[in-house]
Amino acid sequence: MKKLVRIAALASVLALAAACQGYTLVKGGSPVEVGNAMKVSPERSWSKLTSGKYEIWTVDGPILQQILFASGVEDGEKLFPTDAQTPKTLPEFKKGMTELEITELYRDTLVQLGGTQFEIQEIAPKTIAGKQGFRFEFTFATKEGLQKNGIAEAVLAEDKLYFVAYTGAKLHYYPKNLPDAEQVMGSVEIL
């Protein structure tokens, strides 16, 4: 792995510069809009990547821990932004999906992106942004066998899906920022 990292680093001076431009800072302590359809009030600072109505926030890097926001997903849209390299078979959100179908939508998205061993530990109703939504806890693993934990919250408003998922490496990184993620998820407002 070390050698791979070294090769990757050597061969990637240009790519490195290009890629790292994508992150911007979310400053803790003030409310911030997410994808033009949600607002959250983070207490700590995060680094974020934006692609339209989707954002990924992280502290140590998205492999270690991340919050995925999908802000106002409409009928026929996906839970993850698509580009040339994401699989074309990512499942779509459909109007009228039941809560369980939304958990399946997330599971199938994760599996298509390379996750495995997805299991829901618990799913229960929860009030989110003053509306009736739900929350579920889950575990999964990467192709390489890295065990991850996650929580997700979802709410439907005017046939649009507002979805936030926090995931991270079971060892250290998930628990490390879980309180921060819970704080962010607890502050969700729908615009």
Partner: peptide
């Protein structure tokens, strides 16, 4: 750059153990 970064995250959201910048290099 932006689209490449998202693809990296797409894979890395669930995979591997490098940082986003390093992998992009690996892909190149």
């Amino acid at each position: 750059a932006k689209s490449r970064l998202w693809s990296t995250v797409a894979v890395f959201a669930v995979a591997v153990g490098l940082t986003a910048c390093q992998t992009t290099g690996g892909d190149a």
